[in-house]
Amino acid sequence: MCCRLLIPNWLAGLLATGVLLILLVFTASHGAVQIPLSAIPDLLLMNAPLLSDEQQFWRDVLLEIRLPRVLFAALAGGVLALAGATMQALFRNPLAEPGLIGISSGASLGAVSAIVLGGGSFAILAPAAFLGSILATALAYHLGRRYAGMAGLLLAGIAINAICGSLMGLFTYLADDNQLRSLTFWNMGSLAGATWQRLALLGPFLLLISIWIMRYWRAMNALLLGEREALHLGFAIKGLRRKLIVLVALLIGPLVAATGGIGFVGLVVPHCARMLLGADHRRLLPASFLLGAIALVLADYIARIAVVPAELPIGVVTSLIGGPFFLWLLLSRKS
């Protein structure tokens, strides 16, 4: 761990928050619609009747389309990374991610069945995806409980994932051409549906759960030593496991329902945070949240800018950039 940053917690937190804020402003000021930077203060400060038609248009683009999207990207990135960090602590394995216990595949199955059986309007799709993720996780948890330790949960998760995958295959087979295309796009993920209403609906809830999860940092630190050791240190492991799984499912379920599958953030970002700051969950969890927010805001920016006036699917960008970046991190650490 040669490259770990040796700076105090408060400074690191301030730094990351600062970077995130600057990034939010920067990415919100760029997009397919060209808005001159010099015009932005006027747009935000002047009264609506004083603006010209053009300025009115810019203001609507900025405030109604870009801002909710950029904020939603930050929220989604933070939540995905935090959930990833939590799962990695819970499974005591750096390869763990929320998908491991069926959360993502349950959501996908819910979405797929909504698209094929229910017409696939967002009003059906989102609740179905949410329900799917919660059901799959609950099933994995209950089946896995019969086995001692995390191995049971892991095995049950693998089985649930396999079953969800095969049912998805069945629905894909039954789907017609239009439904197939909807499926493909859902699986690639998108932040294009971000609106203020959705942000208001999901934001407070997800932030609350996130803070709740961060409060378990002591228990996660104890888990680093081993399950038995954590138990001897006075943590009720069984209850803790259930609580954390429920919290992660409550984080990821609604998010996946709203955005579709956005891969790689939950796996890679906690890793980067750990390489930078070490494994102390007191700082790792907030750091993962902030880094995840930064990563997804950047990825969404690239998705919006790369092929103007069209747009890349966000899931493609996160995997396309996250994968090589992660490899580079791994390789550069060794030398």
């Binding site: 248009f57 683009v61 389309i65 909807s182 796009f185 294009a192 092929v307 006036p309 069209a310 747009e311």
Partner: peptide, 18 residues
């Protein structure tokens, strides 16, 4: 002509920019 993405997932800002 400029392309604003695939119709199932067109770019909102791309359309506005046109």
């Amino acid at each position: 002509l400029p392309k604003v993405g695939y119709y199932r997932q067109f770019s909102l800002e791309g359309v506005l920019a046109s």
